[in-house]
Simulated assay, not measured.
Amino acid sequence: MSQRTIRTVIKPQAQKLGPLTMHQPLPANGLDQLDPFLLLHHHGPTTFPAHNSGLPFGPHPHRGFETVTFIYEGDVRHRDSSGFSSTIRTGGVQWMTTGRGLVHSESSSEEFREKGGPVELIQLWTNLPARFKGVDPHYVGLQKDEIPSVTLDGGNVTVAVTSGVWNETTGPVQPVYDVELANVTMLEGGSFIRRIEASRTVLFYLLNGSVIVSEREVTGRTLVVFQNDGDELHVRATSDSRILLGSAEPINEPVVSYGPFVMNTEQEIRQAVMDYQSGRMGTLTD
């Protein structure tokens, strides 16, 4: 067993996206992807006033990958052209397989638009291999109490397991492609060791707080990029912290993206645009 070494750390700059403040550590300059992780947007924390217009993610198409939305504060109302619909609140997760294509929207509930309140989200895109890009779209929405958790280090570390396995606890989402994702909450002084096969890509995003990982201290908001040279992560919190931690085997295929479409060739992108414009991905109106 050996610790992975850190290749680089990425501190994203703040950007305004409607009423939200958004941080994008992935993609970043010099880092197009962490195969198969394509994009990570950290929205907030932001407080919406009463009588607000809600989240600004109106109907838009996707094809060729999976989207995962972690709702740390607030709520997200999901609707899509395949007929899936749900409102997920604080602590919940939305996992959507876009596959051959669909149109969806992410808005706020009527109650939230009326009363306002804090909002914090992470939106993550994970790629699909060519063999899965044509699968039927699918959606899973989970509330906080539907996501199992594991307690480590005498209660100093809590792991909410979305997919994959932690200490014999299996997450409720079974992704099309083998992606493990969990949210780790750490109290100051807490620590854990996570074994991840050296061949797998690690996604390690520190939302807030400060931790020592691979003998280096990092502070939130930070994406830590690792080499594939070890099979363990050793993490210790130097203040109360939250981490989005995941892993997956690299797909190692060409990636051609155009806005909301992620395929393997330019021709497939052109086809995706035509299919969306002709209504083959369905339609959705607010």
Results as ranks from 00 to 15, higher is better:
3 Q>P: 05
15 Q>P: 01
16 K>H: 12
22 M>G: 03
24 Q>M: 15
26 L>A: 12
40 L>E: 05
56 P>M: 11
57 F>C: 04
59 P>N: 06
59 P>K: 00
60 H>I: 06
62 H>D: 01
66 E>T: 06
75 D>V: 01
85 S>T: 15
85 S>D: 14
89 R>Y: 12
98 T>G: 02
98 T>A: 15
102 L>E: 01
118 P>I: 01
123 Q>W: 08
124 L>Y: 12
132 F>P: 00
133 K>F: 07
138 H>W: 10
139 Y>F: 13
151 T>W: 03
157 V>Q: 11
162 T>Y: 11
162 T>N: 09
181 L>G: 03
182 A>F: 09
185 T>W: 00
186 M>N: 07
187 L>T: 13
189 G>C: 04
191 S>M: 13
192 F>S: 13
194 R>E: 15
194 R>V: 07
197 E>D: 15
201 T>Y: 04
204 F>P: 02
207 L>P: 07
212 I>M: 12
212 I>V: 15
213 V>T: 15
222 T>F: 12
225 V>W: 07
227 Q>M: 13
230 G>N: 06
243 I>C: 10
256 V>S: 09
257 S>E: 13
258 Y>D: 12
261 F>K: 10
266 E>D: 12
269 I>K: 12
271 Q>A: 12
274 M>I: 13
275 D>L: 07
279 G>P: 08
